[in-house]
Design a binder for these strands. Structure first.
Length: 843
RNA sequence: GCCCGGAUGGUGAAAUCGGCAGACACAGCGGACUUAAAAUCCGCAGACCGUAAAAGGUCGUGGGGGUUCAAGUCCCCCUCCGGGCACCA
């Protein structure tokens, strides 16, 4: 900032954040206890305020600044309200970017990552964020990831971690497998121009599906979570109740059967074909000897592959091939043709369906294309009257032409027909999910080593090459430091002889270590528990500590984690609860997802060239103005358009606060009181306190909190003459400035600390009590009542506060503008809403 | 296609329970101070009609309908924008 030559007025100084902020930052850095949480057994009400931990890319961006400005304001407010606050920060430090950086710069991932962490920690301190650095968690350090390994072993013991060969998502760019949650529209979540391939690999999985029902039903209780996130998780879990029905294949010498999954077993009398996925085992079996079927199936699979590569799986045209075989409908013995169809998903339900064209839109379309019969079995009433097909009729439908079930309602028939299948041994009610088990193996270096070995020779109970879990005493399995990172396939750890070759912990024979590492989402699934006991070297954390702090009272982060981190961490919480480590069912009682920071109408990104650097903003306007602008420019749940002029505006506002406070610091420092004049100023002060307090406890619309503080400051400025003359007494001045500075503390901590000291406040301003709104002082003596005629404003009358209906009505009718307006008209009705308005209904 | 959000001045927004639409800012314009500029301070500012200037009037919260003394807010229909899900049987 340019130096001005203007001399300062007596007792007031120019606001200079470049001087104030580093001074306070140094003081805060020197005092580790300042933001430290108190012990879990201090007997105080607790508040766990958490922002999502960042990936240490090396640079904070505006999204971080916004996220942390919200959390920091809340944490400071809760301290001032007397809570024991835990406000920690850490680093999601494993992951591919470190390996890419290693390739590019020839720096070891650990070195690169730790340097980035140091740089970002410095930026956070520069922002004046109130983190308790004593509880810092860095996921790439052995004291953290050993507990990933420990928990993985516990899950293995419980059968929740297992190995299987299956089709997995492979990103050629990352050169590793991805979880289903990390594939978006067939593309990698980190490389949206890279198509994910399907590969058959043996991988480690976590049995998240075991908790599918609880993950779903738990959403109902998460009232403090945005409805949007709950809906997204509900969709992702994709629970579907239905019935499995087994059809025998007609005339098949080997007794083959096919089981279909349907949610509408009531319509089974209308089934006119059975449709199988091309990958279905029965199809493979038939294709192995059926020369006509084999090429058709091959073609179908090839087409699917091509469509997937074009990234356009949804647009593929539905088509099918008749296998020439028939299946027997077990309800009525009817023979229906068996087809192979390209739209049947192999990994959903049983990979086979019954096709009921009359009552399913997609089956209807398919039947029309291939001339399959359409057989109506549901109508709106028993007479089967005129409804166009396909007719779904779930709630109001009645079965027709359905044997013993004719005349039943669809819903009743579903129950009875499923029971019938069960009794007769050809089916049962069942539930399927879209959610699949979580594949956690990654063929990468920079992650947590999976604590498993493969015993080469085998021993009792373990075949040669079989899995042997390491004992707890072998933890941590350290990630070797000298590893060559290359782009060639396979896990880089597989090329480290000293790592791979080991001995079997059971038989002592030669063994090979697992060379895959864990998905980094494992790290972030439970990091927030570690904050409660970050230095524990004998357990992931002490249960008593975790039980005191959990659930997180407020979790704040971006909505982009709605079905990744936020579903994994809910799962992990339930697992740890079942392991007896914690009591809570859910990690966070309340979740807040803040809006994006945009510039020129688009999300900030390097490719668009619209990135605004937080460092630059701090340099130009200071950290206080930068973070306060992030809270002022929009309510926190909405997108925020970054306008530098707005930051300058906040900076001017803070300069005004600074000028006024320094000018009156001496007189204000003499004490504070509530009587003897200055009523107007005190009224505004207490109205502002009420408003800001309300915003904190409710909607977090800090934009309006800050606006009301600006009104207070404008009012103070308007009272300068009265303050100078002594018309406003010193005690009132003290009250006003002490209130103002404390209200500013959650939003602009640096300048608040500086001004609090000048006021002789003593102690850290954000550890003093939040000012209390005095209703008496806040009350207006007069109120303005708008007077309307037929809903249109005529005038505003002033009456004494608390006037009753009769007084307000009389005042309204006596007003000269009202009298003029009523000339020659009849008042039909007078509506008086005390304290609000008067509306005259006239004719 | 289905499910969530959203649309208010030149701009960001406010109006929290159906009760003065546009608080508070940004940008703009006019003025004071200054040799000048910056900074600061004061004032103006939804649109249209009207007036010498006023006064005054009309319209106005994406569009159309409705409920009500009163609608940005509630109900019905529609448009556009953002996000999520999507061959899920």
């Amino acid at each position: 900032m340019a130096e001005t030559t203007r001399g300062v007025n007596e007792g007031q100084q120019r606001y200079n954040p470049a001087e104030i902020e580093p001074k306070w930052q140094a003081r805060w850095d020197a005092d580790a206890s300042l933001y430290a949480a108190e012990s879990h057994d201090a007997g105080k009400p607790k508040f766990y305020c958490l922002e999502m931990l960042p990936y240490p890319s090396g640079q904070l961006h505006m999204g971080h600044v916004r996220n942390y400005a919200i959390g920091d304001a809340l944490a400071r407010f809760m301290w001032m309200r007397g809570y024991n606050v835990l406000h920690p920060m850490g680093w999601d430090a494993f992951g591919l970017p470190a390996e890419n950086a290693a390739l590019k710069n020839n720096t070891p991932p650990a070195e690169w990552t730790l340097a980035n962490i140091a740089a970002m920690r410095k930026q956070m301190r520069r922002m004046g964020l109130s983190y308790d650095w004593e509880t810092e968690v860095t996921t790439c350090l052995p004291d953290y990831y050993r507990w990933n390994q420990w928990l993985f072993l516990k899950m293995y013991e419980k059968g929740l971690a297992y190995r299987k060969k299956s089709k997995v998502n492979w990103c050629p760019e990352c050169a590793t497998v991805l979880a289903n949650e990390q594939v978006i529209d067939g593309r990698c979540w980190r490389h949206d121009d890279t198509l994910v391939e399907q590969r058959d690999l043996t991988q480690w999985f976590l049995r998240i599906t075991q908790y599918a029902d609880e993950l779903l039903s738990g959403l109902e209780k998460l009232e403090g979570w945005p409805e949007k996130v709950r809906t997204m998780q509900r969709n992702w879990i994709g629970r579907s109740e239905g019935t499995e029905v087994t059809f025998a294949i007609d005339g098949c010498p080997d007794g083959s059967k096919v089981t279909v999954f349907t949610t509408r077993v009531d319509t089974i009398f209308g089934a006119t074909s059975v449709q199988l996925a091309p990958e279905h085992p029965l199809v493979r079996h038939w294709a192995s000897f059926d020369e006509k079927l084999a090429p058709a199936v091959e073609e179908m699979l090839a087409q699917q592959k091509a469509a997937r590569e074009a990234g356009d799986l949804g647009a593929i045209e539905k088509h099918g091939v008749d296998t020439g075989r028939f299946a027997v409908n077990p309800y009525n013995g009817e023979l229906v043709p068996v087809w192979v169809a390209n739209y049947i998903l192999a990994d959903y339900g049983t990979g086979a369906i019954m096709s009921v064209p009359a009552h399913d839109a997609r089956d209807f379309e398919f039947a029309a294309k291939y001339g399959l019969p359409v057989k109506r079995v549901v109508a709106a009433n028993v007479d089967g009257e005129g409804l166009e097909l396909p007719y779904l009729g779930e709630d109001e439908g009645v079965l027709i032409d359905s044997g013993a079930w004719t005349g039943e309602s669809c819903l009743e028939a579903q129950e009875k027909m499923a029971a019938f299948a069960q009794t007769n041994g050809f089916g049962s009610k069942t539930v399927t999910y879209r959610l699949k088990d979580w594949g956690v193996s990654r063929q990468r270096y920079w992650g947590t080593p999976i604590p498993m070995v493969y015993c080469e020779r085998g021993h009792a109970g373990v075949e040669a090459g079989g899995v042997v879990p390491l004992p707890e005493s072998a933890l941590p399995v350290l990630l070797p430091e000298q590893v060559e990172i290359t782009q060639q396939g396979g896990s880089p750890l597989g090329r480290v002889e000293g790592f791979v070759n080991t001995t079997c912990p059971v038989c002592g024979g030669p063994a090979r270590r697992e060379t895959d590492t864990m998905d980094t989402f494992v790290d972030s699934s439970w990091y927030f528990y570690r904050y409660t006991d970050a230095k524990n070297s004998t357990a992931p954390f002490d249960s008593a500590k975790a039980n005191y702090w959990f659930p997180i009272d407020q979790y704040i982060g971006g909505v982009e984690h709605a079905i990744l981190h936020l579903i994994y961490s809910r799962f992990w919480t339930k697992v740890m609860r079942d392991l007896g480590l914690i009591h809570n069912d859910e990690p966070a009682a309340r979740l807040f997802t803040q809006g994006m920071v945009i510039k020129d109408g688009a999300k900030m990104s390097k490719s668009k060239g619209n990135v605004v650097s937080p460092d630059l903003m701090i340099e130009r306007y200071g950290a206080d103005a930068t973070r306060m602008y992030a809270l002022f420019a929009a309510p926190p749940d909405r997108d925020l358009e970054w306008q530098e002029e707005g930051v300058a505006g906040i900076s001017r506002f803070l300069a005004k606060v600074y000028r006024l406070t320094t000018k009156y610091a001496e007189v204000a420092g003499k004490g504070s009181g509530k009587s003897g004049g200055g009523a107007d100023l005190l009224r505004t002060l207490h109205q502002t306190i009420a408003k800001v307090t309300q915003d904190f406890s409710g909607r977090w619309h800090f934009n309006t909190s800050i606006a009301s503080i600006m009104i207070l400051v404008n009012e103070i400025a308007a009272n300068e003459a009265a303050m100078d003359s002594g018309e406003v007494p010193a005690l009132a001045i003290g009250e006003v400035f002490r209130g103002l500075v404390r209200m500013l503390a959650p939003f602009a901590p640096f300048v608040s600390a500086e001004l609090w000291e000048l006021l002789g406040g003593g102690g850290a301003v954000f550890r003093t009590a939040w000012p209390a709104a005095d209703e008496e002082l806040a009350r207006e003596s007069e109120m303005e009542i708008p007077v309307q005629s037929n809903g249109k404003l005529v005038t505003v009358v002033r009456v004494a506060a608390g006037s009753d209906e009769a007084v307000i009505k009389a005042a309204a009718l006596a007003d000269e503008k009202v009298v003029a307006r009523l000339e020659g008209k009849t008042v039909v009705k007078v509506i008086v809403v005390p304290g609000k308005l008067v509306n005259l209904v006239v004719r």
